[in-house]
Write a protein that binds this DNA or RNA. Structure first.
Length: 570
DNA sequence: GCCGTTTTCGGCCCGACTGTTTTCAGTCG
């Protein structure tokens, strides 16, 4: 039983209780529980089997713990089944429609017989909604539009895509003379791997001028809200963009508010309450008196906390750590000394060894490992033993020719279906950096996949396990593997785990990176560059590492080459 | 339903915008 599934059960319960008009705090407990479960790096099923104390997880009390046990042990949940009997199965989905919450869903169900999105659409078209309580023609229009948008399924966008859109919109708004500052906040500022929408904070004297320009943005398909300080658009690709205008005096509290996450903010506000304070986007208040708000630092200090980096603001223990003075000193891009995963024209890369090396030197790196594919990766023209031997010679030559950069001889060798290596040990031992990776046979059962990878990294010449879960963000699910087991072996064998920096991979992800660190693993951040331009993707790997609470010491390619070689040797 | 360095009971974050109707409930982030 996957954690995700358990989280879904809790969300479903919350939705149903919501529509039934239950106690909102009880509903929130289920939503909080769902989030805790989904964020959890280790498998709950395992925890249940080991008899672990589930109530130690934040937001999980006796009741939810018991339900988790029931789901793990029986695959079902009686409580949820009972709830489902009371309402039509299609009803909770209505909550996914923009502008429809539990109250309207219930109203439509009771007064217009709506029990699914299809029947909602029909009711709106037939004009059966506008005679209901506080509903007019406009409501019906909005619902029909929102259904269309939902069916288009905009969903989430990759972080790099988010940066591109944020850039275009800030460029577009810049000509407004009164504009002082424009900062993309929200999940983009927290560097989440995907963003659901774009939140932009504007510091501007005349809010209406800015708002009026914003809603005329050419790619806007829909104006969702147009107020004096806050407006929202939906772009043609479905991405929602919110702009909030504030004054310079509120900059800190506004940025805090608009960066989120929502649950981080709720936790901060709860803490404030306990201190007799109130937090909103305009500042921090004791009674009517405003005691902070100009900078984020000031806001955190007023709550007895040091400034917390945006990447940590997920309510995953950062507030408690901050209160104890135990925040990590997060790794920074400038601390990276080299890249240990790069391809060349020898296989599917676009540049030569020398071009890659020069580009790495230009970035200020001390080293780069050239790690082309092995023969199993046919589409990339992977190298066999002989071809690799020749390739290694070429790498040596470039290394001799260039000064100021060490070019390391490497390979990205495939872990075959049975866990053996795609190349023999004789050639692997000639390499200074051996990266092992899975590129085929993703569909193995979890046990087999785990065994396969463990067998792969148990080869004494393997130094790094690349993109350990194989996922492609928004495209391909991770393969089924027990990462805890793999990490345990990696720690024992001295194999380094990769954070692949490509914005489509970010693999390990933030949560697993943190788990790996806590289990004592060493990590490396690599770009997997297939062209010199891609060496610059390193920053995405840094974002993920920071979200995983990693420090310089956790990441081996922050070291000079000599120490690095010592760290990867087995 | 969860939680507690005041609390095992009594709280539970906070404000903007919309559509509708004259004062606000619902939704959203």
């Amino acid at each position: 039983m996957e954690n995700k599934k358990i989280a879904q059960y809790f969300t479903e319960i919350a939705d149903l209780l919501d529509i039934m008009g239950e106690n909102p705090f009880r509903i929130r407990s289920y939503r909080n529980g769902a989030r805790t479960v989904e964020d959890l790096p280790e498998n709950l099923a395992g925890l249940v089997r080991e008899g672990g104390d589930l109530t130690r997880l934040p937001g999980i009390g006796e009741s939810l713990a018991e339900k988790i046990r029931e789901i793990v042990e029986t695959g079902k949940l009686k409580f949820l089944d009972e709830l489902k009997k009371k309402l039509p199965v299609g009803l909770p989905e209505l909550l996914r429609i923009e502008g429809i919450g539990p109250k309207k869903a219930k109203l439509f169900y009771e007064k217009a017989g709506v029990d699914s999105i299809q029947s909602l659409e029909k009711a709106a078209k037939d004009g059966r909604l506008h005679n209901l309580f506080r509903m007019g023609d406009k409501t019906e229009d909005n619902i029909l539009r929102a259904i269309k948008n939902y069916q288009k399924g905009a969903g989430r966008f990759r972080l790099d895509v988010g940066f591109t859109y944020a850039g275009s919109i800030t460029e577009y708004l810049k000509p407004v003379k009164e504009l002082k500052d424009l900062i993309p906040a929200g999940s983009l500022r927290r560097r989440r791997e995907t963003i659901g929408d774009l939140d932009i904070l504007a510091i501007c004297k005349s809010s209406s001028i800015l708002m009026n320009r914003f809603v005329k943005y050419e790619d806007a398909e829909d104006i969702l809200a147009h107020g004096t300080t806050k407006s929202s658009l939906r772009l043609s690709n479905g991405l929602q963009v919110d702009v909030r205008v504030m004054g310079a005096q509120q900059f800190g509290s506004a940025l805090l508010y608009f960066t989120g996450s929502k649950s981080h903010n709720i936790a901060l506000r709860t803490r404030a309450q306990e201190m007799g304070l109130k937090v909103n986007e305009y500042g921090i208040f004791r009674g009517k008196k405003r005691i902070a708000g100009k900078t984020e630092e000031e806001c955190y200090h007023s709550l007895g906390l040091p400034w917390i980096p945006p990447e940590l603001r997920e309510n995953r223990g950062e507030i408690e750590a901050a209160a104890k003075g135990k925040l990590p000193r997060l790794i920074e891009l400038g601390e990276i000394r080299g890249d240990l995963h790069a391809h060349t024209r020898a296989t599917d890369g676009k540049n030569s060894i020398e071009e890659m090396a020069r580009a790495a030197r230009k970035l200020g790196y001390a080293y780069i490992a050239i790690t082309d594919h092995s023969k199993a990766v046919k589409v990339a023209g992977g190298l066999d033993e002989q071809a690799l031997a020749k390739h290694l010679k070429k790498i040596e030559k470039v290394n001799e020719k260039l000064s100021g950069i060490r070019v390391l001889k490497g390979v990205e060798v495939d872990i075959l279906g049975d866990g053996t290596m795609d190349l023999n040990d004789d050639i692997l031992k000639e390499c200074e950096v051996v990266i092992a990776a899975v590129h085929y046979h993703f569909n193995l059962p979890e046990k087999e996949m785990t065994k396969r990878i463990i067998r792969g990294i148990s080869n004494r010449y393997v130094n790094i396990l690349a993109h350990p879960t194989g996922r492609l963000i928004l495209e391909r699910e991770p393969y089924r593997v027990n990462l805890e087991e793999v990490i345990k072996v990696a720690v024992n064998e001295g194999v380094v785990l990769e954070i692949n920096a490509h914005p489509a991979r970010l693999d390990l992800n933030d949560i697993h990176s943190r788990m790996a660190k806590e289990m004592g693993a060493k990590l490396v951040i690599n770009t997997d560059a297939h062209a010199i331009s891609q060496l610059g993707l390193m920053r995405y790997g840094i974002f993920t590492a920071r979200r995983g609470w990693l420090e310089k010491e956790d990441v081996i390619n922050t070291n000079p080459v000599k120490k690095l070689m010592g760290l990867i040797s087995r």
